[in-house]
Write a protein that binds this DNA or RNA. Sequence first.
DNA 1: TAGAGAGTTCGAGTGCACTCCAGGCAAGCG
DNA 2: CGCTTGCCTGGAGTGCACTCGAACTCTCTA
Lengths: 150, 150
Amino acid sequence: MAVTESVPTALRVVDRTIPDRRPDGRDQYTISEVAAYTGLSVHTLRWYERIGLMPHVDRTSTGQRRFSNKDLDWLGFIGKLRLTGMPVAGMLEYADLVRQGDETVGARAELLTAHRDDVRRRIAELQGTLDVLDWKINLYDAAERRTEVG
Amino acid sequence: MAVTESVPTALRVVDRTIPDRRPDGRDQYTISEVAAYTGLSVHTLRWYERIGLMPHVDRTSTGQRRFSNKDLDWLGFIGKLRLTGMPVAGMLEYADLVRQGDETVGARAELLTAHRDDVRRRIAELQGTLDVLDWKINLYDAAERRTEVG
DNA sequence: TAGAGAGTTCGAGTGCACTCCAGGCAAGCG
DNA sequence: CGCTTGCCTGGAGTGCACTCGAACTCTCTA
């Protein structure tokens, strides 16, 4: 019965002080480096792994995580999915398909296609609502001008 | 540090079996009529009133709510705001400005303009992500065709 | 060798937006 | 008159996506 979708504040307010390029040429990044690079918190990165959203991250002999460039690619992609409002459950489903191997490419394409349709629908919806906002803002601006003049 | 915003499932999945026109020509609607019309649950309608998002709803002698056409208009507008991901706190702020009267039209225009910018930014963001989805989907489709043929 | 700093786990806590429940009242019907 | 239906309230519960805390280990620098 809910009528809308909330969008985490971070996504909305985010000021992108996050470096656009990888820390350097290595293939081994600590969790805090990855946090700085992706904009996710270290908490979130660990949580993603816990719930099964990361495809096994390497560890040092003492148990510390070392993320690879492949991990960064993955985080980048699911970051896009999150950005478009895909719930974590959906990303989990996708991650499971990837884990299952090549015979799931069809299912993956299907999942992403459905999501793409959803994104397109939401874009259209947002654009429709822009008109209402324009109309209201114009009303207010006109009212203000009247106040200034009269 | 959150990177995204979740969008309540209902908004995404909603099949609009909701009548597009008002129940009838009256100016007095029960809470369940309004629920059917707006797509909000009766719980949500009462909750909106509780938190101060509704500008005083009439009551019968026995205490039942009777919504007016004006209330329906208001719900329609804040419904649009919700649809664009404005948090309830923001709508509350807007509602307060409306309550304060005509001298707040400037502030209201500002609030809505800021929100409009935000919506525009999000549309652009979604559109950017569509490209990534297209690219991935094409990859998968190509892989599938290879499997079929080879 | 002591202390700072960064990492670890797992479970608990948070904020948002609802969503539901218990217990009760009022109107209409057979 | 009793029953069903629809409404009322205040507070508790839910689901999602993080976010934090406590207690601990490891490495590095002074």
